[in-house]
Amino acid sequence: MITSLGERHLLLRHHEHGHGHDHGHGDLIETKTRGSRRIKVVKRVLDANDITAGRNRELFACKKVFVLNMMSSPGSGKTTTLEKTLARLMPEMKAAVIVGDICTTNDADRLASSGAPVVQINTDQFGGDCHLAAHVIEKALDGIDLDAIDLLIVENIGNLVCPAEFDIGEDKRVVVLSVTEGEDKPAKYPLMFRVCDAALINKTDLLPYLDYDLKAAEETIARINPGMSVFKISAKTEDGFDAWLDWLKDQVRVKLG
C-alpha cells in the first residue's frame, strides 16, 4: 500500500516507525531509518552577491575607474574625511561618490558641496540597511558617468560587521576608526580589519582630551592584519592627510597606470 507524501512527511518528522504497512518494501524502510535522502549542495550563500560584485569589478576595469570602499562604525568621520579628501583631490583627479545613508540626505548634501557627483543610496527594505550589497552598487552606477571619472568612493553604511562580508567590486577597502571609540575596536571586529587594506585612525585632534591608547590600537591592528597601512588623521584639522592622500593617489595610479 502506498502512503501519501503528506503522511510520510509527518511520519518521518516524528520519527514514528510504523511497523505495519511498509513491511516488505525494502527500499522504503532503509530510507526511513536514515530519515531522509541527503543531497550534496556545497554552495556559498553569498554567491549571487559575489557574481554581481565580479560584474561590477569588470565594468570598473573596462572603464578605468579605481573604486574605494570606505567603512566604519557610525560617526567615525567617513563623510568629514571624504569631504576634505575630495576637496584636496579634485583638482588633479575626477571623482564621484556613492553614499549609503539609511534615512537622510545629509551626507549626500555635504559631499555634493565638493563638486563631485554624488549618488545617494536608498537601501533595500529587505534587511539591506546594514550594508551595501553589490546589486545596490550596480543600480547606483546608472546615475554615474564612469567615463568621466578616475576614482569612485563608496561611503558604506556605518557598521563594522556586515560591510566586511559583502564584496561590491571595489579595488581597495579602507576602515575608519576614531579615537573616541575605544582602542579595542579592531579586536572586536577582526574581520573588518582583516579584509581592509588601510585603516584611518581619525579625530586625533581629540587625543589630548582622551585616555586613548594609540599604541595598543596600532599593535592590535598589526596582529590582525600585519600588512595594513595605518594613517593617523584628523578630518577636522587635516593633520596627517598628506600620507593618506599619497597612499590613495598611489593606489589609483597603480590601477590606471
Binding site: L5, R8, H9, L12, R13, L28, T31, K32, G35, S36, R37, R38, I39, K40, V41, V42, K43, R44, V45
Partner: peptide
Amino acid sequence: DIDTIELVD
C-alpha cells in the same frame, strides 16, 4: 555555505 539538504523520503 549550504553543505547538504535532506529531502523527506
